[in-house]
Amino acid sequence: MKKYLNMKFTILVLLGFYMLVLSPHSQAQDKQYKARLSVDYQKIMGDKASLLINGKFKGEDGYEPTTHLSLNVYQEIQEDSLVLVGQTVTDNKGNAQFDLASVETAGDSIVKYTYVVKIEDSERFKDLKKSVSYQETNLSAEAIVQDSVNYISAKFTDGMGDPIEGAKLTVMVDRLFAPLTIGKSSYKTDDDGTILVPIEEPLPGVDGILTFEVMLDSRKYGIVRTIFDAPIGVPVVDLSTFDDRTMWSPPSKTPLFLWIFPNLLILGIWTIIVILISNLYKIYKS
């Protein structure tokens, strides 16, 4: 009877454990969420072009990143004709970057390129697709001097080299933690596709070299950036006392006066003490 009761009790406990812990979990595993994707095209001049992808979904704790999610990337060749060009996986923040260097671009430079990113056959998320389109462009920039004033000159052209007017470019300079915007938040290109931004304040840089960045962020052309160095900064004077002999440096860099005088003092006093002790010995011997 007792054995029977024990067995009954064990079964009840296991059942309760399954209902409380395992069952909701398995239900949660079965549930498919609807994800949201954002896809941007980014081109860094002289470097690479890529798709910047971010995914999130509305979970039980609000919006959460779609971590470790496999995404298929397609290129649209003709209308409704997709060619799989590769796969990418999101990281812990739901971000992924798909490098377009390996993708052969088809068509001429004024043709609109379209890529489609898809969630397909995911256990956690429902199928979803998101597309991004862009036109081939070029962005070039340099530092110039006019009337003893430094300027950043940038030119924005299409794939054929024709200037694009009215594009909003932002000029920034690299600082320690984040780029610093120079002048207004953006400048519109003129009919030559150029902007000219004065650098009114002297900017400090290591050896006087500053790293500038000119950026375009538009729906039509995607994110286009160009980064270049220019020796127009004020050289940073190294104020570090790391190699100096200071009061706060390690023992190997003790200031010389602190080596000489206290040690002379210590040596002098202890020499006298030794003489005094030797006097005791003399007393003992005499």
């Binding site: 023992p251 003790t254 003490i273």
Partner: peptide
């Protein structure tokens, strides 16, 4: 690991000296 810049080092030296004297 004594640093001659540190007053704690000076203290150790001077107390030892003073005990002797």
């Amino acid at each position: 690991h004594a640093r001659l810049q540190s007053p704690i080092t000076w203290d150790v030296v001077i107390i030892t000296t003073y005990i002797a004297i």
